[in-house]
Nucleic acid binder design. Structure first.
Length: 288
DNA sequence: GACGCGTGGGC
DNA sequence: TGCCCAAGCGT
């Protein structure tokens, strides 16, 4: 029995955001789409795209029956467009192997394209009420601070951290699911990465990090990815041209958005290799 | 386990 | 401005 449970659950009841992928009437597909979109992308940017997506493709089968390129186009500027391809691929597996129904177990979900440990646990928990350890960046930070007394968790999850998270997961399914979403929400709204609002935290009196005087992070340097000038930025530019066009676009229309030729050619080749672009005829590029 | 993978907002 | 951050995954 963790003393964190009650105050965190009470806090969630009062302060939770009313998001469209939460609630009793929400489909598992809506939850799944949200989890894909929320991988590394903030809630406020996901909201409008998620709404349009569910309107256009209300079921996995509807998406699977459409072209993958339409998924890439509808993904818009959410970033990491390979997620759109993987969501389409996952929808196809669901249509063909699961009778069109999003599977409900962690193992079945984990087998889907684009679904890793976090996403499988999140869908199983939030869509189906299963009892799983949901270990995302928010939960890791909250548990790191409250239980381990560190400002930030290690770069990657290790066995001890997973065991610790499992040890504080409530034993019954319903409470476990509530605990996971409440802890994530606390991390997102209060126990934030920078400038946490400890004055508004329901467990500030129990927090090991607070009790230790909020010591600064001492682990290995947290990597901040560069972006300007990278292949990734180049890929984004090239894909945007095709995404915003109607049919196939000629090579010269790509040439003008990135000046460095060898980098541009490398990025174009990688987009083709990833399946984000096709070359229907030599020198012309289109969505798949 | 490290790395590559988009994009935009806040300060 | 440049840095930091945002519900990770696949290789």
């Amino acid at each position: 029995m963790s003393e964190l449970w009650a105050p965190v659950l009470d806090w969630y009841d009062e302060h939770r955001r009313d998001l469209p992928w939460r609630g009793d009437h929400v489909s598992a597909w809506s939850v799944m789409v949200s989890e894909f979109m929320l991988q590394q992308t903030p809630v406020v940017r996901v909201l409008p795209v998620h709404e349009a997506w569910l309107e256009r493709w209300p079921t996995p089968g509807a998406l699977a029956d459409d072209a993958a390129g339409e998924a890439v186009r509808a993904w818009g500027r959410l970033g990491y467009p390979r997620r759109a391809l993987r969501l389409h691929a996952a929808a196809t597996v669901i249509r063909d192997e699961h009778g069109g129904q999003v599977p409900s177990t962690y193992a079945e979900l984990l087998a889907l394209p684009g679904v890793g440990d976090y996403t499988a646990a999140a869908i199983a928990t939030f869509a189906f009420g299963r009892r799983q350890v949901v270990l995302d960046t928010n939960v890791r930070r909250v548990l790191g601070r409250t239980l381990s007394g560190v400002e930030f968790p290690a770069p990657s999850v290790n066995r001890a951290e997973r065991d610790l998270a499992a040890s504080v997961l409530p034993p019954d399914e319903e409470t476990a699911a509530a605990w996971s979403i409440a802890t994530m929400e606390l991390g997102a709204l209060v126990c934030t990465a920078s400038e946490p609002s400890c004055g508004r935290c329901p467990v500030v009196d129990l927090c090991a990090w607070q009790g230790a005087g909020r010591p600064a992070y001492e682990g290995p340097a947290r990597k901040v990815q560069t972006y300007a000038g990278t292949d990734r930025q180049c890929r984004g530019r090239l894909l945007a041209v095709v995404r915003d066009a109607e049919g196939a676009v000629a090579r010269h229309r790509l040439d003008v958005v990135w000046a460095i030729e060898d980098q541009r050619e490398r990025a174009l080749a990688s987009l083709l290799a990833d399946g984000l672009l096709t070359e229907p005829e030599p020198g012309f590029y289109a969505l798949p």
